[in-house]
């Protein structure tokens, strides 16, 4: 008869063997995707990091001078400020709005699916169509200005003034509200009903239930929604570029604009340095988020 220790060792070895062979199987299936990502994303990005230490044509090593150059570049600083302002305005606004929407929809009994689809529709509209629509509305001869003219109010230059920022914020929220709302709903459905029942028995009202039950249980979801919203916020560049071109109004001149323009003028060294700096900042932010999320779980 085998001793208990020997049986345990056999189990451990079997378990390790099974884990290793499963790992190998997983690697085998992941390999094509990993290969593709390495070739098209990881290796080029390593090259970008390398290029950020060389001159434009990749001939002369220049050390950190590209980084100094962009940190002193007024256009870059302007773009970073605008990007931070945009993110700082949009993401909290989007999170709050979509949470409210999802709470309302959670309780909704009639036409729930119809309302969900309505909110999700903007996400499926192609960018070009959105641009055409926005031009129809916000152009100097667009619908809004025609209406204003009808009421003897002078035209508003939406695209070439500070108001362009608000149009962009509106575009971002309008496009992504449905998506975030669905994610919130998923989080809400994951909360056990028995908590609410118990709270009702204890005499908790709506606000107390929201604050002590709903919100704490939604915290893991916040991290995921936050990251996804953050990534989606950069996609709004497509609308900004198509409506306002390479050099839009200062209020919507963002990081992607300057990187785009640097590419056209062959300032690859600046572009690479800016990309590396941006990546570092985002990495720090995401790690902070992750840390917060872990702390909350614990």
């Amino acid at each position: 008869m085998l001793s208990k220790l020997k049986i345990k060792n056999i189990h451990l070895r079997y378990f390790r063997y099974k884990k290793n062979s499963e790992f190998k199987k997983a690697l085998f299936f992941l390999a094509p995707s990993l290969l593709g990502i390495s070739i098209f994303v990881l290796i080029p990005f390593v090259d970008v990091i390398r290029r950020s230490f060389f001159d434009a044509m990749n001939k002369k090593y220049v050390g950190l001078s590209n980084y100094y150059s962009i940190l002193g570049n007024e256009a870059f600083i302007k773009a970073v400020k605008n990007t931070v302002r945009f993110l700082g305005t949009c993401i909290p606004l989007l999170l709050v709005l979509t949470l409210l929407l999802s709470l309302l929809l959670y309780k909704q009994k009639k036409h729930k699916e119809f309302l969900k689809i309505s909110f999700l529709l903007p996400m499926s509209i192609p960018v070009a169509s959105v641009v055409v629509l926005w031009k129809l509305l916000f152009h100097e001869n667009g619908l809004i200005n025609v209406l204003l003219h009808h009421f003897h109010i002078s035209n508003i230059n939406f695209i070439n003034s500070g108001k362009a920022f608000y149009i962009l914020v509106f575009t971002y929220i309008w496009k992504n509200a449905g998506y975030d709302m669905i994610l919130w709903l998923t989080g809400l459905y994951g909360i056990d009903e028995s908590y609410y029942e118990a709270a009702s028995v204890d005499g908790a009202g709506r606000v107390a239930k929201f604050y002590y039950i709903t919100l704490p249980n939604l915290l893991p979801t916040i991290f995921m929604i936050g990251v996804l919203s953050f990534i989606n916020s950069f996609k709004v560049f497509r609308e900004a570029y198509l409506i306002a071109g390479d050099y839009p109004n200062n209020s919507i001149y963002m990081l992607q604009h300057i990187l785009n323009n640097w590419f056209v003028s062959l300032d690859i060294q600046k572009m690479s340095a800016a990309a590396v700096l941006t990546m570092l900042v985002f990495l720090i932010l995401i790690l902070l988020f992750k840390l917060l999320d872990k702390t909350q779980e614990e």
């Binding site: 007024e74 302007k78 035209n155 070439n160 050099y247 300032d267």
Partner: peptide, 27 residues
């Protein structure tokens, strides 16, 4: 063009142009 077609005045047009040109030159 909006200045020429009467949609705004010369100062507004110049302000917009200067802002964009400065951004371009700052790059």
């Amino acid at each position: 063009l909006p200045y020429f077609t009467g949609k705004n005045n010369v100062n507004q047009a110049v302000d917009i142009i200067i802002q964009k040109v400065n951004t371009y030159l700052e790059e």
